[in-house]
Design a protein around this nucleic acid. Structure first.
Length: 544
RNA sequence: GGGUCCGUAGCUCAGCAAGGUUUAGAGCGGUGGCCUCUUAAGCCAUUGGCCGAGGGUUCGAAUCCCUCCGGACCCGCCA
């Protein structure tokens, strides 16, 4: 037997069944279901969860966490089991720092639960936290995610976590040890992992809970202040007590995940590596305190901006989903987020054009316009397309135009008639033969891009005396010319007369008119711009 | 100190968690050409890589394991 034969037969023999839609999410969902079966738990409803930060402008990474956890829930459904995705707003968290770009008056609200801070962003919501949450939910909805919303504040008020809170309080000694062992943090060996809202000053991060009274399920606290983000928040010295089941405080992060997972019966949660340590401690609390196997986890990398810095919710230059949606479709952002699970991803506007094009390519595959030989590869691409559309792909493909082509057209489109100009050109180029579904939206994306990032024209082009003379001649020639062909010819005529190479002359012209060394064919371009406009620009360059 | 990710063509990256149509792909760039006088766009062709290094597993490794080198990030306050 030669190796070729063996290769063929072995390969065919080993080729596994395609799981679900063939993507990472299907694999994860399959593992999750398998794990739950082994644990002997109910498969009636498999829940995944994502925590929504409510203290700063939601960025791409916040949306990514939602999309990933949601995708796994969908993967579970594909395999025939019921699943639910929970979006849990951390709106009981206290404000620790004024996020860059947000009003300074938030300074006065440091340490307050964000759900108790007034909406300083326009007063259109019940609280600052509600406003922030709504920004993320808006993006989540545009992305097409179906979710069950929960507010941390409400969850505490309704007592959903009470059993877990009590168990944690009763075992706080053991928990302090776990945290100390897993994280090396000594604090909770003598402090209870619960932040009470101070009855006197209403802040949450200034209180220190020092004693638990099991008989009354209450704890004693002192508003002694705390260091938050390298800055001391002075307490009000109030001494008080709080019923831990009354929703007037919250668990520390070091234990809250565990409580949430157990109370809400969460079976899967992917998390960013920044909270890896917390997750590890919470997993142990699930096992050691609740006697319950924690959810399956997957750790993923943080989103990076172009410079390789973490996009922080509180560090300004926030690249939000809303920003992406101004220049690219929601599905193209979903693609960026979903196409790889673990690796570091860059979140910047430069990702938009390639992802718009990649999405078009996926659509070609989905609608069978592009054939993919390998069945596994084919399934993967089609599956990814489905996840990007949240399993609701469109029935008809949209028009596919390379994003850069749209940008180039948008760049040279005459003011006032941009959309028509672009459409006409695309018609000429034959890009609209299969219809124009979604074209208006694409044109708008490109126009938005050019409006915000278009290179400013070079205002100063230093001209030699010869060049000035040539430009003057051209101005004169253009004055006589009346159509595209004549405009085009004038350039060559003048170049000949002045003894210049047409090539360099064109370069000069585009430098003046577009700030670039190349540009559209001169004749039609002049017609589009308007002869008078071009002449005015050229004169300006001579005088400069 | 602990941990994660990355290293593939000049550039940006895909492929790696399902090892076998992979004698390794794409886009951009470069080069040559087409579209009536060179110039955007578009189209065609072409260029280009010891898959970071070394070892291991395997009939077979860019892909899995180990070590090392280089780059980035997270944690080591708090939440």
């Amino acid at each position: 037997m030669d190796s070729g034969d063996r290769t063929m037969s072995t390969k065919q023999g080993e080729r596994p069944e395609i799981i679900g839609r063939g993507t990472w999410y299907d694999k994860a969902a399959a593992e999750l279901i398998e794990r739950e079966k082994k644990l002997g738990r109910s498969l009636d409803c498999i829940r995944t969860e994502s925590g929504l930060g409510a203290s700063g402008i939601p960025h791409i990474g916040s949306l990514a966490d939602v999309l990933r956890n949601h995708a796994v829930a969908q993967g579970v459904r594909i395999q025939g089991y019921d699943a639910e995705f929970i979006a849990f707003s951390d709106d009981k968290d206290g404000l620790r720092k004024v996020p860059v770009g947000l009003p300074d008056e938030l300074e006065d609200w440091l340490g307050f639960p964000v759900s108790s801070i007034p909406d300083v962003l326009g007063g259109c919501h019940d609280s600052f936290g509600a406003h922030i949450t709504s920004l993320l939910l808006e993006a989540v909805e545009v992305s097409g995610v179906d979710y069950t919303f929960m507010s941390g504040t409400k969850v505490y008020e309704e007592g959903v976590l009470n059993d877990e809170i009590v168990a944690i309080m009763e075992n706080h000694g053991k928990i302090g040890t776990i945290i100390q062992e897993e994280l090396g943090q000594e604090k909770y060996t003598d402090t209870l992992p619960y932040f009470a809202v101070c009855e006197s000053c209403n802040r949450i991060y200034t209180t220190n809970a020092y004693r638990y009274v099991p008989e009354e399920q209450k704890l004693l606290y002192r508003c002694k202040g705390m260091e938050v983000k390298g800055r001391w928040l002075e307490g009000c010295d109030h001494e008080g007590e709080v019923d831990v089941t009354a929703g007037r405080g919250k668990l520390s992060w070091k234990v809250e995940f565990a409580a949430r997972w157990h109370a809400l019966d969460i079976r899967f949660e992917a998390y960013g590596k920044d909270i890896a340590d917390s997750v590890r401690a919470n997993d142990r609390i699930c096992r050691d305190i609740f006697g319950w196997e924690p959810p399956m986890h997957v750790q993923y990398e943080m989103f990076l901006d172009r410079g390789g810095k973490k996009i922080s919710k509180s560090a300004g230059n926030v690249f939000t989903p809303q920003v992406w949606h101004r220049y690219g479709s929601p599905q193209s952002l979903n693609l960026l987020i979903l196409k790889r699970f673990v690796g570091t991803k860059s979140g910047s506007v430069e990702e938009i054009p390639p992802h718009m094009d990649e999405l078009d390519d996926l659509e070609e595959v989905w609608f069978g316009k592009r054939k993919v030989k390998d069945p596994m590869e084919n399934a993967k691409l089609r599956g990814l397309y489905e996840y990007v559309w949240m399993l609701n792909p469109p029935e008809e493909p949209g028009v596919h135009i390379p994003y850069n082509l749209l940008l180039n057209l948008a760049k040279v489109a005459p003011k006032g008639v941009e959309a028509k100009f672009i459409r006409d050109k695309l018609e000429d180029y034959g890009n609209l033969k299969d219809g124009d579904a979604g074209l208006e939206r694409r044109i708008q994306y490109a126009l938005n891009w050019i409006e915000d990032f278009g290179e400013p024209e070079l205002h100063q082009v230093s001209l030699t005396a010869e060049e000035k003379k040539a430009i003057s001649s051209l101005v004169a020639a253009l004055g006589q010319a009346t159509d595209e062909e004549a405009y085009q010819s004038s350039v060559f005529d003048v170049a000949r007369e002045e003894g210049m190479r047409p090539g360099s002359f064109f370069q000069l012209l585009y430098g003046i008119l577009l700030g670039k060394t190349r540009g559209p064919r001169f004749g039609p371009f002049t017609a589009t711009m308007g002869k008078e406009t071009v002449i005015a620009e050229l004169k300006r360059a001579i005088d400069a």
